[in-house]
Design a protein around this nucleic acid. Sequence first.
DNA 1: TCTAAAAATGGAAGAATCTTCCGAGCCTGA
DNA 2: TCAGGCTCGGAAGATTCTTCCATTTTTAGA
Lengths: 158, 158
Amino acid sequence: MEESSEPDLDRIDLNILRILQAEGRLSNAELAMRVNVSAATCHRRTQRLFEEGYITGVRAEVAPAAVGLGALVMVGVVLDRSTPDSFAAFEKAVLAIKDVLDCNLVAGDFDYLLKIRVRDMVDFNKLHGQTLIALPGVRQTRTFFVMKEVKENARLAF
Amino acid sequence: MEESSEPDLDRIDLNILRILQAEGRLSNAELAMRVNVSAATCHRRTQRLFEEGYITGVRAEVAPAAVGLGALVMVGVVLDRSTPDSFAAFEKAVLAIKDVLDCNLVAGDFDYLLKIRVRDMVDFNKLHGQTLIALPGVRQTRTFFVMKEVKENARLAF
DNA sequence: TCTAAAAATGGAAGAATCTTCCGAGCCTGA
DNA sequence: TCAGGCTCGGAAGATTCTTCCATTTTTAGA
């Protein structure tokens, strides 16, 4: 009688996740009302969702432009060789670059796709010329300047 | 006497932003201690950061795999024509697709780059065949399956 | 079907936190 | 120098959190 996909999350848990995903600072009392359980139960449920890793953290979203990070750039990276060592070295180096928000190993024309936030194009050119192309094993990069952010970091639909 | 870049954020405000970006559920009392001001001042500062749009929201991060969204896919999209109407129609349609987390208009080989989360490759194939290539004005798409998420949604460095 | 153990629930209350008011300190400009 | 505006921290009522406990609901076996 095991459920097929999401083992131990019932409708209430899923609603808590959905609501906190949108409003992470909601008070427990208000959250309890919205999901139709008592404050005590809601508190226990939410605590469990944190403890068991369904919620990995709660973060305030800072407006990038407000802190001088107005430029968003996507970069495709191709490495020289496709060896495990080569990948590992590249990944370790990328993790240390604060401007890189996302880094994904992909199948397709690139080895990695990066998402980068910097102040402006001048800053990106410096990052590109001094850091990115100097990363271990990089054969070539392809840059995609973002001209308009249509949708950014949307909530998960479940 | 206008400052060049970040007008009205002093060191304390920036620290509040940095801390809340990492721990959005921190109590005001604890936050006040960390930034070395009284609870009252910290409360006022934080409130202002919300009201003036420096913090756009606070969100719980839900583990994608826990809610059945284990697959991450990047898709490059090229449109038939590069007219404003064409772009507008595409963007409007994309905003309605819940699986699309990011959508950016870029300069380069593609018109748009999408970031999509679905359950698995089967789900992606369905989404691709039934929805993506049927979006208004789409000439071609290029799919990049993510094989490893090296860095995901990192915090802004400022 | 029935029963007993196990688990989850909601109410209540002490503890902790929030939120606002107020007076004091500190620049700023005349 | 001094008046005005701004920001600060302490304090206290209001709100919220967190836990305990009795009750209800669910589960599993006979």
